[in-house]
Design a protein around this nucleic acid. Sequence first.
DNA 1: GCCAACGTTGGC
DNA 2: GCCAACGTTGGC
Length: 151
Amino acid sequence: MKYYLMKSEPDCYSIDDLKKDKTTSWSGVRNYQARNFMMDMRKGDEILFYHSNAKEIGIAGIGNISKEAYPDHTAWNPKDEHYDAKIAHGDPRWQMVDVRFVKKFPHVVTLDTLKNTPSLKNMITLRKGNRLSITPVTKKEFETIVKLSEK
DNA sequence: GCCAACGTTGGC
DNA sequence: GCCAACGTTGGC
């Protein structure tokens, strides 16, 4: 079992949307590093759902991987916001996974809290200038954040 | 809305 | 292969 953090702008897609939908396909990732992490994901791996560019920035809940990486067809659709004109139709360069809702935290574990928790200081997403939308987290980091959400 | 930090692109 | 220019991300 592995653990990841996935960022989403709640104006675009929030933990409440995931709760309502039950599962969603994580399409639109156009960054090679983030894609590679998705390709490492296995069914059942757990993810921290992070709200970026939000009124309340931080981790809003938990999901898990319900379907492993498969081609992101939105890259081939000229009408899609994440259309990639540089690849051929059918090119499986960009991939997505399906994420299932697990729980919404009773309160957001804010970025401020994350920064002020010494055992989380190595989290990739907290490093200066990091913009990766998908990053691995350790089991310990995952469990620490779950505990913070219960406080 | 600003801007620092980063990834990508393309000319050479 | 270098690197300047550009576009994007995301916190503030």
